[in-house]
């Protein structure tokens, strides 16, 4: 009962959190490039403007698919906070991302299609990590829901150092930051125009944007999960991780997809796999 309210709260508050985070991100990025940057609330203005614009759909399927993308992103967070099994949450998270790939693939444009292919690659690169992360958390705490992990009396994070480091690498993909922003780009000059969002406009692009806000909030919740005993510490840890992402985003060029796939899989396999394996070996 209580947990359902948390889920509902997430659906309402996560976009505010994600949008504000995007606003801070844009200010900080601008300052790193010695620019002033847009107002803090610019992401909200942008989405507001997008919603007012006329929407052109290349393929009528794209609309429902993108709506599905937003709904499943929101659902991922709601289920997580609502007390569903963590492994199940990781699968819903992947499903939500898959809707975006399908929507982009449905547009009959080469840029969009190649972007969708690349998104599929980064999805392949990042999904094993989330499953391993959930497995690691469940293994350490012995429980399998968000609320139970938070109620677990010991810190989870110290036993998952490999997963913490891998989190930083995979978050670069999920937050669409350079060097791993191969499927879309927050910065428009790239080989795929805007990758998988090339053929989305108006309302549809607003959906993608809002879904991304949910995505940031979910990643934040995952961080809180790792720092289970105190959510303020989890928030601070997420803030530090995000700041690092922004710094790396402004200090590297975009990598090619082979490097993305290789480095994320290597990180997942060595750091996460090693971490989880060690838990089983040392554990009992």
């Amino acid at each position: 009962m209580n947990t359902a309210i948390y889920g509902l709260l997430f659906v309402v508050l996560a976009p505010l959190f994600g949008g504000l985070l995007a606003g801070v991100d844009r200010r900080v990025s601008a300052r790193m490039q010695s620019r002033i940057g847009p107002p803090l609330l610019q992401p909200f203005y942008d989405v507001g403007k997008l919603l007012q614009k006329k929407t052109r759909q290349v393929n009528p399927v794209a609309g429902p698919l993108l709506l599905g993308h937003v709904i499943f992103m929101a659902a991922t967070g709601a289920l997580l906070l609502g007390g569903t099994d963590l492994i199940f949450v990781a699968f819903v998270f992947a499903l939500a991302a898959l809707f975006l790939v399908l929507a982009a693939g449905s547009a009959n444009s080469p840029y969009s299609f190649t972007g969708a292919e690349r998104e599929l690659i980064v999805l392949l690169a990042s999904e094993p990590f989330f499953i391993l992360m959930m497995a690691g958390v469940c293994k350490v705490s012995g429980v399998s829901t968000f609320g139970d992990v938070l109620a677990y009396p010991q810190w989870v994070a110290p036993q998952l150092p490999g997963i913490l480091i891998a989190f930083l690498i995979v978050a670069t993909i999920k937050l669409r930051k350079s060097p791993f922003d191969i499927s879309t780009s927050h910065h428009p000059h790239q080989e795929l125009v805007s990758g998988l969002t090339t053929d989305m406009s108006g309302r549809l692009l607003a959906y993608v944007e809002v879904a991304h806000w949910y995505e940031s909030a979910i990643l934040c919740a995952f961080m809180v999960l790792l720092f289970n005993r105190s959510w303020p510490i989890g928030l601070v840890a997420f803030g530090v991780a995000y700041a690092l992402e922004v710094l790396v985003d402004n200090s590297t060029s975009r990598a090619k997809w082979q490097l993305v796939l290789r480095s994320t899989w290597a990180a997942t396999l060595v750091l996460c796999g090693g971490n989880v394996l060690a838990l089983f070996v040392i554990g009992r």
Binding site: M32, S34, S178, E191, S251, S253, R254
Partner: peptide
């Protein structure tokens, strides 16, 4: 060139 390989910050520096 920096922009083409996705290095926005370097692009800004050169143009400044």
């Amino acid at each position: 060139g920096a922009d083409a390989f996705g290095f926005e910050n370097l692009f800004m520096h050169c143009w400044r």
